[in-house]
Design a protein around this nucleic acid. Structure first.
Length: 460
RNA sequence: GUGGCUAUAGUUUAACGGUAGAACAGCGGGUUGUGGUCCCGCUGGCCUGGGUUCAACUCCCAGUAGCCACCCCA
C-alpha cells in the first residue's frame, strides 16, 4: 500500500454514449449502404441538417407536453444567449430547412433522407443510448395515400433487405377535425371504468386520454381491448385516406397489422401512423413484451404550417440503427464482411524499405488491395501480419532482391514462392490473383448449390 | 423519475477473511530473410470511500459506473 505514484485519472464514456469500435463498423457500413441503396431506388435525395437547432423548433413541433421535450432534450444556452438543443429527432429540422430554403417552389413532392446522430437524455438501456443514430425518410408536399404506402413499404423493405423479420403495425389517428370527437368518446368510455383503471391511466384520463391506449398495466388491458377505436370515428376524408393506404399496402404485399393501440409519442402526427417491430420467434424468453420499436413514423400534415410555413402535407419515418444492429446480432444474421486485402508488401533492410514505399504507391494506383508493415523489421513479424490479414499473396523485397532487381511472390495458402523480375511485378500479381479468384468462384458455386439458402446479399 | 442485478488484466473469467490464478488477445523468443500449429517468456488486474477485523479483493454500508426492467421511445 506504499504506492507513491498517484494513479492518473482516466476518462470514461459519458453516460449513454457509445464508441463504435472498428470491430463494429461492418454493421454500420452494411446498414448505411443498404439504406443509401434503397433511398436511391426510390428517388430520395440526401439532406444533412445540423445537430443543433433552436429549442423552440422542437417544443413547437414535437409537442410541449411530450416526454421528449419535457425531460429528454439536451438543451442549453449558448454564449450568444440562444436557447438551443441537440436534435432529438430529424423531422423538425428537415421541415425547418424545407421552409427556410423555399423548397416549396421545387417540384413537389420533395423526397429526402438523412442519417446521423440524435440525442435524448433518457436512461440508457438495451438498444437505447443518449446519443443514438437514425436514418430518416421524408416525403414533403404530397397528400396522396400512395405516399403513405410507399413510406411504409420502404421502412418495411429496409428491414427485409437486412434480413430482419418485422411486423408493421398501423393505425390512423385522424385529423384535427375528427380526432377531438374520438377523444371525447374515448374519455367518456374510460370515465365509466375510472375506478378500475391503473393509477397512471387515471392520471392520463384528464391530461391525455389517448395515452391510456399505450398502457402496459395488466389491469387496463381488458378495457383497452374493448375501447372504442379511432378507426371507427374517422371523418369521411380520413377514413378514405386510410382505406386507400391499406389497399396500396395490399397491392405491394406489405404485411401489416392493424393496431388501434399504437399512439405515437410525438404530437404532430395526423392520419397514418405506424411502427415497425421485430417478429418474436423465440417464445423462450417471451420477449418480456420488450416493445423495442425498430422504427416508426407517419403523416404530419399540419407540421409545416405549425412551424410557420405554408400549409403543406408531409410524412416520414425513422429507424434506430443501434436497434437494428442489436436485432441483427440477436437473430444471428450474417452480414457481408468488408472486402479484405489481397497482398501484403514486406521489406527487409533500409534500401528495400525505401523501394517498398514507392512500390506500395504503385500497387495502390494499379488498384490492388494491398497492405504494408513498414514499421516492422524482421520478415517473421511481417508474415504474421500477412497471416492475420488473410492475404493471398505476400511480396518480399529484401537485400537479395534489391541486388538482382527482382521480387519474391509468396502464395500464402500453399507456401510456394517464386522470384520474378521486379519490372513485371504488377502483371505477375494480377495473373496470380486472377487464378485464385477463379478457384474461389468455383468454390462459391459449389457452396451455393449445396446451401442455396445461405446467400449473402450483394456488397455495394 | 422508480425498481432489480452486477463490478477481479484489453476481453472472458477462477479462487480465497491472510493482498490473486487461467484462457484468449498483445509483445518477445525457439540462432542469421519466412506466417498459420507447437513450446517458452514478458506485459497487465481486485471501481472509489468508509466500517467490521490482528488482517478485507473477499463481509457490511455508502458512492460511482455498467447492465436490465418499468415509464417513454428509435
Amino acid at each position: 500500500m506504499t504506492k507513491k505514484e498517484v494513479k492518473k485519472k482516466t476518462f470514461q464514456l459519458i453516460k449513454g454514449m457509445k464508441d463504435i469500435l472498428p470491430a463494429e463498423q461492418k454493421y454500420w457500413e452494411y446498414i448505411i449502404s443498404e439504406v443509401k441503396k434503397i433511398a436511391r431506388q426510390y428517388g430520395f435525395e440526401r439532406i444533412d441538417i445540423p445537430v443543433v437547432e433552436a429549442t423552440d423548433l422542437f417544443s413547437r413541433s414535437v409537442g410541449q407536453a411530450t416526454d421528449i421535450v419535457e425531460k429528454e432534450m439536451y438543451s442549453f444556452v449558448d454564449k450568444g444567449n440562444e436557447n438551443i438543443s441537440l436534435r432529438p429527432e430529424f423531422t423538425a429540422g428537415i421541415m425547418r430547412a424545407y421552409i427556410e430554403h423555399g423548397m416549396l417552389d421545387l417540384p413537389q413532392p420533395i423526397k429526402v433522407y438523412t442519417i446521423g446522430p440524435c440525442f435524448r437524455y433518457d436512461k440508457p438501456q438495451a438498444g437505447r443510448y443518449r446519443q443514438f443514430h437514425q436514418f430518416n425518410f421524408e416525403i414533403i408536399g404530397e397528400e396522396d395515400p400512395v405516399c403513405d404506402a410507399q413510406i411504409i413499404q420502404i421502412a418495411y423493405k429496409i428491414n427485409c433487405v437486412i434480413g430482419l423479420e418485422v411486423n408493421v403495425q398501423i393505425n390512423s389517428v385522424g385529423c384535427p377535425i375528427c380526432r377531438p370527437d374520438y377523444e371525447q368518446v374515448l374519455k367518456e368510455y374510460f370515465k365509466k371504468h375510472r375506478s378500475k383503471l391503473s393509477e397512471v391511466s387515471q392520471k392520463r384520463l384528464a391530461k391525455n386520454t389517448l395515452r391510456i391506449l399505450d398502457s402496459k398495466e395488466e389491469q387496463d388491458q381488458s378495457f383497452i381491448e374493448e375501447a372504442p377505436q379511432q378507426v371507427d370515428y374517422l371523418c369521411e376524408e380520413c377514413r378514405n385516406h386510410f382505406i386507400r393506404v391499406l389497399e396500396y399496402l395490399d397491392e405491394l404485399e406489405v404485411p401489416y397489422i392493424l393496431n388501434p393501440t399504437i399512439v405515437r409519442g410525438l404530437d404532430y402526427y395526423t392520419r397514418t401512423i405506424f411502427e415497425v417491430t421485430p417478429v418474436e420467434v423465440s417464445d423462450s424468453d417471451k420477449e418480456q413484451s420488450r416493445q423495442t420499436a425498430l422504427g416508426g413514423g407517419g403523416r404530419y400534415d399540419g407540421l409545416i404550417e405549425l412551424l410557420g410555413g405554408r400549409s403543406t402535407p408531409s410524412l416520414g419515418f425513422a429507424s434506430g440503427i443501434e436497434r437494428l444492429i442489436l436485432q441483427i446480432k440477436e437473430k444471428n444474421i450474417k452480414i457481408p464482411t468488408p472486402p479484405s486485402c489481397d497482398i501484403l508488401l514486406t521489406q527487409l533492410g533500409e534500401d528495400a524499405r525505401k523501394k517498398a514505399l514507392v512500390l506500395f504507391e504503385e500497387l495502390t494506383k494499379a488498384g490492388f488491395k494491398v497492405r504494408e508493415a513498414f514499421s516492422k523489421n524482421g520478415l517473421k513479424p511481417q508474415l504474421e501480419i500477412a497471416n492475420r490479414l488473410g492475404v493471398k499473396l505476400a511480396l518480399i523485397l529484401g537485400q537479395k532482391e534489391m541486388i538482382d532487381g527482382t521480387i519474391m511472390i509468396r502464395d500464402m495458402d500453399g507456401g510456394i514462392q517464386e522470384i520474378v523480375d521486379y519490372q513485371k511485378v504488377i502483371p505477375e500479381i494480377k495473373k496470380r490473383l486472377e487464378k485464385l479468384a477463379i478457384v474461389n468462384i468455383k468454390l462459391d458455386n459449389k457452396n451455393k448449390s449445396m446451401h442455396p439458402a445461405s446467400e449473402v446479399p450483394d456488397k455495394e
